[in-house]
Design a protein around this nucleic acid. Structure first.
Length: 313
DNA sequence: CCCGTTTCGGGCTCGTGAGA
DNA sequence: TCTCACGAGCCCGAAACGGG
């Protein structure tokens, strides 16, 4: 933590002529006194620090000591900041804040506002609409476990709603369609499995460590490495869904049926996520084939209806 | 669990520069 | 030249951490 802050401060000082201690304290969310101690440490490490007292004072590094560090163009830094901000939206931590501070430190002060403006023009937000504190906490634990090769245990509700106790060796976190998944070796199933983080509870990072197994980090689509078989649905949709369908399965899988109706061949995995997606389209979308999916959709609608049509007590 | 060390924060003083 | 605002720096104590 401290070493990260020290490196960040050096990067900032290298770029700026001077910066005040309170500004640094605010930036790193620490006490002013802590910044002075950091400056002292940096000084003792042999980096010549100059302090300017009085109004418009501040802290700086001797000009002669500054090195050429124009590795990144302003455009590079803007792109990196946009990317980091999007990660920060789902995985906020101090390390990321420090990295962003370092990058901002590379921007000359008179151009900082312009870079921030550009960075703010694009917002990639993967967070769900409603609170995700529990998921954040779990993500933090999983990240620690992955970094330290430590197994994790948790209670899990699978896509069929069945509860089980699991112990896995975690390998990778995946963010897909606003949901976090973890890929790991399940000791119960003795194979690699994927678990949705939001379906986990009582997650614990265990003391025991594991020796990493062969794991294909190059696999792009998490569904291809699971037991979830992709099938194709034949959907009859209203033209109002055309845009979203083109986005999801491409123009080639869509043909005009008649009037404002289209036939869509839709890639589908038989789980809650995909069934909910189909149901979300409401009366603008009908599943024609295969029969078993059609039946399952009908059952889900009837189940829903039974709740709403329940007689008052 | 204890004790020494490290890290951090609060409160204060001192130094500097701008403006009246 | 004096005053005021701002910022650096010092002292001390609390909390956290780590080793025995």
């Amino acid at each position: 933590m401290k070493i990260d802050r020290l490196v960040s401060i050096i990067m900032i000082l290298l770029e700026r002529k001077k910066i005040s201690a309170p500004e640094l304290a605010k930036m790193f969310e620490v006490n002013l006194r802590t910044i002075y101690r950091d400056i002292d440490t940096i000084n003792q490490a042999g980096i010549p620090i100059i302090t300017y007292r009085g109004a418009n004072g501040g802290i700086g590094i001797m000009e002669e000591y500054k090195i050429e560090k124009k590795l990144f163009t302003l455009s590079d830094i803007t792109e990196l900041l946009i990317g980091l901000k999007s990660i920060y939206s789902t995985m906020s931590n101090q390390e990321l804040l420090n990295t962003m501070a370092k990058l901002k430190g590379l921007v000359p002060k008179d151009e900082l506002q312009q870079v921030e403006k550009k960075t703010n023009r694009i917002k990639i937000d993967h967070t769900p609409w409603f609170g995700n504190e529990r998921i954040q906490l779990n993500l933090k634990k999983i990240k620690t476990a992955i970094n330290e090769n430590r197994s994790i245990s948790f209670k899990y509700f699978d896509r069929l709603g069945q509860k089980s106790e699991r112990k896995i060796e975690p390998y990778r976190l995946v963010l897909k369609n606003s949901s976090w998944y973890i890929q790991g070796y399940c000791t119960l199933r003795e194979d690699f499995r994927i678990f949705e983080v939001s379906n986990m509870s009582s997650l614990k990072v265990l003391e025991e460590t594991f020796i990493p197994r062969e794991f294909d980090y190059d696999s792009q689509d998490i569904y291809f490495r699971t037991d979830r078989k992709t099938i194709t649905l034949k959907l009859l949709i209203h033209e109002s869904l055309l845009d979203i369908m083109i986005e999801f399965c491409g123009k080639d899988n869509i043909t005009l049926y008649k009037d404002d109706k289209y036939i869509v061949y839709f890639p589908f995995v038989e789980d809650d996520y995909f069934y909910n997606m189909i149901l979300r389209f409401g009366d603008k979308c009908e599943c024609l084939e295969p029969e078993n999916v059609r039946v399952e959709i009908i059952e889900r609608i009837e189940k829903l209806l039974s709740i709403y049509k329940k007689l008052p007590k």
